[in-house]
Amino acid sequence: MGNYDALLVVSFGGPEKPDDVMPFLENVVRGRGIPRERLLEVEAHYQRFGGASPINQQCRDLIAAVEPTIDLPVYWGNRNWHPYLEDTLRRMASDGVRRAAAFVTAAYSSYSACRQYIDDIALARAAVEGAPEVVKLRHYFDHPGFVAAMADHTREALDRLPAGLRDSARLVFTAHSIPTSMAATAGPGGGAYEAQLRRAAALVTAEVSGGGDRAWDLVWQSRSGAPHIPWLEPDVCDHLPKVDAPAVVLVPIGFVSDHMEVVYDLDVEAAETARKIGLPLVRAATAGTHPRFVSMVGELLAEPEPVACAATCCPAPPRRHGGSQAPQGSQGSQGSQGSQG
């Protein structure tokens, strides 16, 4: 599989028990001046679900599904929680790994979904003597495997609606909001984050509808940070009351697994909004361990080695007091952006 002797799955990380939550959140926001009361608010979201994010177990599940399909050992390292990237690279070096491909659980271009992971890998390598070379695999937002997985899950969600509502239900695709300044500089020419999400949503809609017409929207979720800093809008909960359709299927196209942001911001907050306005709503699953998504990883490994991003691509946002990005209900990438644990 290419010129690699290992696969490294790189993710955001998340707490796995109640005592992990605050140390995890402090890792996420270190140096950003996030107010303590904001951390306590987000901590409550985790504690509502037993103090555990779904993301770590979902990484384990993905690795268990991928490893038998490729002829490489698979390692796993996180940005913000155990197993940390630095510890994983140290183990890889000890095992004799010299050149690894990195699969990041974020499918899109932006600072948080791509550049920050590249920087995290570089910092971890610099701290480990004899660390392997690590090549980040390409963005996969439009890969047929990702599209097929999301289309299947969207069809499954439509099937959960009453039969009379399925044909006229509106697809509402959601992704993590980011500051508009970050969105403007995403990708080589800027604007790639939103453009890639729209491309993915259009591809999934076309597959679900068999090439026919079906109405869809792209909206945002999990906005955080200082209120005076503009972020991508509209928020999903602001959008739902304006939907002119008898039912909605929420499709979390911006995520590859059910992060805390998905299960809280969509399954709790958006679901409550829909209930209050009497709007039938179901939520499609994320790609997770869908067989086409699993096989996609091997297909990416078999592709020609990707060209590395320019150092100026997806630059880091300026840090302001109060933080340009604070943790919300929780990439990857994806994944995801402010906090995807």
Score class of each variant (00 low, 15 high):
61 D>N: 15
61 D>K: 13
62 L>F: 12
63 I>A: 04
66 V>F: 04
67 E>K: 11
67 E>V: 07
69 T>W: 05
69 T>K: 15
70 I>F: 10
72 L>A: 06
72 L>Q: 04
72 L>K: 11
74 V>T: 08
74 V>P: 03
74 V>K: 05
78 N>H: 09
79 R>G: 01
79 R>A: 11
79 R>K: 14
82 H>A: 14
84 Y>Q: 12
84 Y>T: 08
85 L>D: 08
87 D>L: 10
88 T>N: 11
90 R>V: 05
92 M>D: 00
93 A>M: 04
95 D>N: 12
96 G>D: 13
98 R>A: 13
99 R>I: 12
99 R>P: 11
99 R>T: 10
101 A>F: 00
102 A>P: 02
103 F>E: 05
103 F>V: 01
104 V>A: 03
104 V>H: 00
106 A>M: 07
106 A>S: 13
107 A>M: 13
109 S>C: 13
111 Y>F: 14
111 Y>A: 05
111 Y>T: 00
112 S>T: 12
113 A>D: 03
113 A>M: 03
113 A>I: 01
114 C>W: 13
115 R>V: 11
115 R>K: 15
115 R>P: 05
115 R>I: 06
116 Q>S: 13
117 Y>M: 06
119 D>E: 15
125 R>L: 00
125 R>H: 11
126 A>P: 11
126 A>G: 12
127 A>Y: 02
129 E>P: 12
130 G>I: 08
130 G>A: 04
131 A>M: 05
132 P>M: 10
132 P>N: 09
134 V>M: 07
134 V>A: 10
136 K>M: 15
138 R>H: 08
139 H>L: 14
141 F>W: 14
141 F>C: 08
142 D>M: 05
143 H>T: 10
145 G>Y: 05
145 G>N: 01
145 G>S: 11
146 F>H: 07
150 M>E: 03
150 M>L: 15
151 A>Q: 07
152 D>E: 10
153 H>K: 15
154 T>R: 09
154 T>A: 12
155 R>V: 14
155 R>M: 12
157 A>K: 01
157 A>Y: 04
158 L>Q: 14
158 L>R: 08
159 D>C: 11
160 R>E: 14
163 A>C: 14
164 G>C: 07
165 L>H: 02
166 R>A: 03
168 S>W: 12
168 S>L: 08
169 A>D: 01
169 A>T: 10
170 R>L: 15
171 L>C: 02
171 L>W: 04
171 L>R: 05
173 F>H: 07
175 A>K: 06
176 H>C: 03
177 S>A: 14
177 S>G: 14
178 I>R: 02
178 I>V: 13
180 T>F: 00
181 S>T: 02
181 S>R: 04
183 A>V: 03
184 A>K: 00
187 G>A: 02
188 P>H: 13
189 G>F: 15
192 A>Y: 07
193 Y>I: 01
194 E>R: 10
195 A>F: 09
195 A>H: 13
196 Q>H: 09
200 A>M: 08
201 A>P: 09
